[in-house]
Computed example of a mutant assay.
Amino acid sequence: MKVDFRHILYIEARKNYTRLVLEERPTALVLVTLKQWEKLLPRELFCRIHRGYIIAIDKILSFDNKYVYLSGEKIAIGEQYRNALPDVVTILSNDSFREPIRSIHSDVLSELEL
């Protein structure tokens, strides 16, 4: 199974398996742990926000101290991961647009073969 990083919305732990939640594609259950995903995924594109979740940084709509908001999803931020997002995401505000602008490093896009 090939997975294009650009299609991953988030990855959820399921014991020794993980559930890949993909944009506009069916979810997939794979025999890869979150710890293994952390080693495989580019740090510029993904962030672990909970012991059970890794999210795609460029898919973040907004976040606060408790939750990350993705398209149709609200994922809790774990206590020990509270500082992870501010370290990798910079939110800039432009008053003329009234929308947040996320600044991320997205120059590393690739495919992973499972």
Rank of each mutant, 00 (worst) to 15 (best):
102 R>D: 07
5 F>I: 09
67 Y>T: 09
44 E>H: 07
48 R>E: 04
51 R>I: 02
102 R>M: 15
5 F>P: 00
23 E>W: 02
112 L>R: 09
92 L>M: 07
45 L>V: 06
80 Q>Y: 11
12 E>A: 04
45 L>P: 01
105 H>K: 13
7 H>L: 10
88 V>A: 08
93 S>N: 15
87 D>M: 09
89 V>T: 10
84 A>Y: 08
53 Y>C: 07
63 F>K: 14
75 I>V: 08
54 I>S: 02
37 W>M: 08
60 I>R: 06
25 R>N: 04
112 L>F: 11
10 Y>R: 06
31 L>E: 01
18 T>H: 01
45 L>S: 13
86 P>G: 08
97 F>E: 15
6 R>Q: 14
5 F>H: 08
106 S>P: 00
38 E>I: 01
69 Y>R: 12
62 S>E: 05
19 R>N: 00
34 L>P: 01
39 K>M: 07
93 S>Y: 15
92 L>R: 08
2 K>A: 10
90 T>D: 12
102 R>F: 14
90 T>G: 01
63 F>P: 01
114 L>D: 03
81 Y>N: 06
97 F>I: 15
114 L>Y: 06
83 N>C: 11
11 I>M: 03
72 G>S: 05
8 I>F: 05
14 R>D: 09
36 Q>G: 03
68 V>P: 00
57 I>Q: 13
27 T>V: 02
107 D>E: 08
106 S>E: 03
107 D>S: 02
32 V>N: 07
17 Y>C: 05
89 V>I: 15
62 S>L: 05
49 I>H: 05
7 H>K: 10
17 Y>V: 04
37 W>S: 07
1 M>T: 13
95 D>S: 07
99 E>K: 15
40 L>M: 14
49 I>P: 00
5 F>N: 10
22 L>S: 03
110 S>H: 15
66 K>D: 14
68 V>I: 06
42 P>R: 13
80 Q>P: 05
58 D>Q: 10
31 L>R: 05
12 E>T: 04
7 H>T: 14
53 Y>A: 06
38 E>H: 04
94 N>P: 02
47 C>R: 12
114 L>K: 07
97 F>T: 15
83 N>I: 01
19 R>F: 00
100 P>K: 11
59 K>L: 02
64 D>Q: 06
66 K>P: 01
34 L>M: 06
105 H>Q: 11
107 D>V: 00
74 K>T: 10
89 V>W: 12
65 N>D: 11
61 L>R: 08
31 L>S: 06
75 I>C: 02
27 T>G: 11
47 C>A: 15
103 S>H: 12
85 L>S: 11
8 I>S: 04
10 Y>V: 03
77 I>A: 03
11 I>Y: 03
37 W>K: 13
69 Y>F: 09
64 D>N: 14
72 G>T: 08
99 E>Q: 15
48 R>G: 01
25 R>G: 00
74 K>W: 04
113 E>F: 00
20 L>M: 11
15 K>I: 08
43 R>W: 03
83 N>H: 12
16 N>F: 05
90 T>S: 13
64 D>S: 07
53 Y>L: 09
47 C>L: 09
75 I>T: 00
9 L>E: 13
9 L>M: 09
67 Y>V: 09
8 I>T: 08
